[in-house]
Structure formats: C-alpha cells, structure tokens
Amino acid sequence: MPLSKIIKLSWLICIIVMGLTPASLKAQDEEEQEQLRTRASLSSVQKNDNVLDLKMLIRAKIDGRYTGLPGLEVMFYATTDSSQVELGKAATNEDGIATLTVKTQEVPKDTANLMAFAAEFEGNDEFKGSDDDIEIYPAELLLQPIDEDSSRALLLTLVGNGDPVEDEDISIFVKRLFAPLKVGEGTTDSAGEVDIDFPMDLPGDGEGNLEIFARLEDHSDYGTVEVHAALPWGTPVAQLNQDLPKALWSPNPPTWMLLAFIVLMTAVWGHYAVIVYKLAQVKKEGNAE
C-alpha cells in the first residue's frame, strides 16, 4: 500500500475514533439530558353561575428549585369511562399556570354526577411532557350580604352535588393591590350555612366599592369553590384625598402657595428687569459720549 494511502487511512480512522470517544458520547447524552423533566398539577375553581376554571401548573427543577414554566401549551380534556372530550387549550402564564374556563353544564358527567378532567403538556425541545387529572362533583357557594345599622356580615351557603355541605371551613377575602386580604372565616352548619362578620373600616375605591369573595379551599370532592361579589362596604378613598389637600397628587396647589410663588418670583425677576434696564441706560449713555 502506498504511503499516501496509509496516511489517508490513518486520518480516517482517527476521525472515526474521535467521533466515538466517551467525550462525544457524553455530549450527545447532555443534549438529551438538557430536556428537563416537568411536573404537572391540575386543580379546579368552581365559581358562581356554573363557571369552572381549570388550572394546570407546570414546573421544572431549575437551579435546585421548582419553578413555574411560562409559555407552554396545555391541552384540557373532560373524560368519562368511554370517551375523552377535548375542552380546549391554554398557555401557561409567567407563574407557569395555564387556565381554561368552562361551563359545568357543558361538561359530560357520569351517573353519580362526577366530573373528570385531564390536562396534558406534550413536551417540547427543552422540557419533557407531563399530565395530571382530577375528579370533582359540582358545587357552589351562595352569598347573601346582611347589612345592619352597626354591623355587616355575609351569609354563605355551601351546596355540593345538590346537597348542603356540613362542617367545612369557609374564608372571606377582599381583593387588594397585590394579594387578597383575608377578613374573616367560619364553619358551615348542618344546613351548609355560615354567618361571617365583615369589617366596617376597609378603604374601598373612589366610591367605596369592595371586591369580596368567599372560598372553600382545595376540597377533596369539590376542589376550590368560590363566590364573588362587589359591595359598597368600603370607605371611599376620595375622602382620604380630601383630608390631604396639600398632597402631591392633589390637582391644584393651595392658594397661599401659588400667591407666595408669584410674589417671590415677581420680586426677584423684577429686580433683574430693573438692572437690565439700567445696564441698557449705561450703554446708551456710553454711545452718546
């Protein structure tokens, strides 16, 4: 075999061997391992008027911490023993939660009125797919405001699968700028009812409206159940503004401040104007000389 062929063959063998070295095999493994495993968690929130929010949280372990993954597409299904109905799809928000709103009367149920849901993230180049499912009965919270002279309260009734639900903890909240503010809690009686006092001194919007909601948290049979209401039970914030007329956000400055500003500015700039006039006189007289 000529020397040149031997050299060429040697090069070819070297390249093939290098291509199969543990380092390159490891690199291929890393490419596969870069696709991170995800965890899916499906939950539900039943609200007034037969509205049901399905919430799918998708997380992955990044830098040692489970972090919600934004921008992933999740498919939601309603399942029965015999079929699976596609409900729709939604993308995860910045917290990694995809939310789909459905009407409970449109969801197929089994003979015991049980609703079964499933949600699936198929996976992509970065993350492996994951799925989860839940089963819940229809439930609702009924809210009745009780406004008396010196006190306010909410009468709440919890109905699960058509029957009153006893001995469950219900909390009431008011929506604030960031997190909801918990303002009271109570336990349902045999009629599924609970009477919770409401504070009288919460600041509301400009007209004193508050966004109030009551919640049964993460129940094993019903999931989370909520009822929302807007009530004029707060202190109008506009009244707070009236107490602070000098505040930076008030539309006009106090009259005395405006007057003081005008007087001071006129006095100083008036002096300047007189001086400029006198300098003009100096120049004029110099020209005459």
């Binding site: 100083v268 001086i275 006198k278 006189q281 100096v282 007289e285 110099g286 000389e289």
Partner: peptide
C-alpha cells in the same frame, strides 16, 4: 464693558444696580 466711560450718570446707574443685586442676593 457696555461703553462704560466713567461718567457720573453711568456710575450712578451701575451703583444702583450693584446695590439692588446685592440686596436681593442676600434674602434669595
């Protein structure tokens, strides 16, 4: 120099101006 020639009138105008500015600078 604004054509300052040292005349009596120019001196007076300048003197008043300087007093005025000195007077207003202190409270300002």
């Amino acid at each position: 120099a604004l054509n300052y020639q040292g005349t009596e009138s120019q001196n007076r105008q300048l003197s008043v101006s300087k007093n005025l500015i000195a007077l207003i600078m202190i409270p300002m």
